[in-house]
Design a protein around this nucleic acid. Sequence first.
RNA 1: GCUCCCUUCGUCUAGAGGCCUAGGACAUAGCCCUCUCAAGGCUGUAACACGGGUUCGAAUCCCGUAGGGAGCGCCA
Length: 465
Amino acid sequence: MTVVTRFAPSPTGLLHVGGVRTALFSWLYARRMKGKFVLRVEDTDRERSTDEAVRVILEGMQWLGLDADEGPYYQTRRFDRYREVIAGMLAAGTAYHCYCTKQELDALREGQLARKEKPRYTGLCRSRTEPRPGVPPVVRFRNPTDGAVVVEDLVHGPVSFQNAELDDLIIARSDGTPTYNFCVVVDDMDMGITHVIRGDDHLNNAPRQMNMLRALGSTPPVYAHVPMILGPDGAKLSKRHGAVSVLQYEEEGFLPDALLNYLVRLGWSHGDQEVFTRDEMIAAFDIHDVNKAASAFNNEKLLWLNQQHMMRAPPARVVPYLQAQLRRIGIDSNDQTLLEGVILAQRERAKTLKEMAQSSRFLFVDSIEVDPQAAAKHLNPEGLGRLGQVRERLAALSEWTAPAINAALNELATQLAVGLGKIAQPLRVAVAGVAVSPPIDVTLGLLGRERTLLRLDSALARKTA
RNA sequence: GCUCCCUUCGUCUAGAGGCCUAGGACAUAGCCCUCUCAAGGCUGUAACACGGGUUCGAAUCCCGUAGGGAGCGCCA
């Protein structure tokens, strides 16, 4: 049997890391099992759904490389199908019209709550045969009244629910539109979903959905309810606590593989391995190894993983992402050799590509600003004195390579009987404008002789100024 | 209130009755390396929610308690 999983986000809020991880688990499982992954947008709530949210889902999934084999499907385009199924259930008696008004239902609920009972529909209209004039009816599912439903959950194990605890839920509103729990059931059935992997906030919905599926003569899929992701403070993920659009991570300079790697390790592990390539994730992932407990999002570890991925990936693969970040700060470079060189030089001192772009800016622009504090410390008379000699040496170099530069600087240091630092720091501030950069020979190599000498000249001009 | 779920270092996790003096990772502290900053290496601090059982033996099994979460909508 071919495995078919799906990701079914609702576009009522922006897709965030919690949703992404559910999508990732579904995608990984499908890929691992050589099955299919379906994307379905659950937009039946027309009031709260937004085009912006749909855009973030589509763009986010694309940025992350979580490619769907089918879809995106939209529930709003399937209303005819839902109506058809409801008509069938009405005819078969597995659903019935309910003429209770909202007001009556509210009163019922209040009474139950007041008596400290579980609020539930009592089945008043179950055996009603005549319509109630003037009341547009809703359609309710006729849930079995006795026995139990067991959800054989892949992460929780068997979870048993008494049918007596489940009431007859509304599957079509009085205006005829279908409700969420019903649409999910029809869609999962029609789309041949074999494994439903979703947040464990849906565990309570599973027994009702299984009952409906059975009433429709369909075999329920296998369920896997994965734990939720909490904010860094251990509280529920919310707007205030990191529930930002997934595209925010792109803007901040994260590699999609790093985010995915971080998220897959929230609730899942494979021995002591922390860093996974996409293929390694697919090869190692198994839904059975997913934990039951919710986990808190930790930004420091994400940062660390992002750097690990920047360091391990072939530079050429990182180039487009660096270019995107450079463009954000007004630099448009297509110099592949330079860009790869920058990545090689900077990746062990940057946590994000945004950071890398910023600290590499001096390598791409014509003129730089020198940080006053760094200048005060290193471009003092003593430092500037040495820079004159540095300039001579560098100008005389026959080839402009890091090893040649390094040799020349070390020679000069020995000759002056000082540590390399006494030469490298003034030089660094002169060419980079700050006291921090990759190794000085690498930095100069990337900068090029012409710009190096130019910047030395403008630094040396301070002497007289 | 009722139903369902969850509980190992600050955080993510390993752990399927003896391999646990509870392992790894992030973070954190110290040291090493060093032209700056990093990266890297080494070392340290730090956890089985609590109480009963079962067993020769329990982080692991059972029962409670506490704490947290979800659901109980003509929301998804």
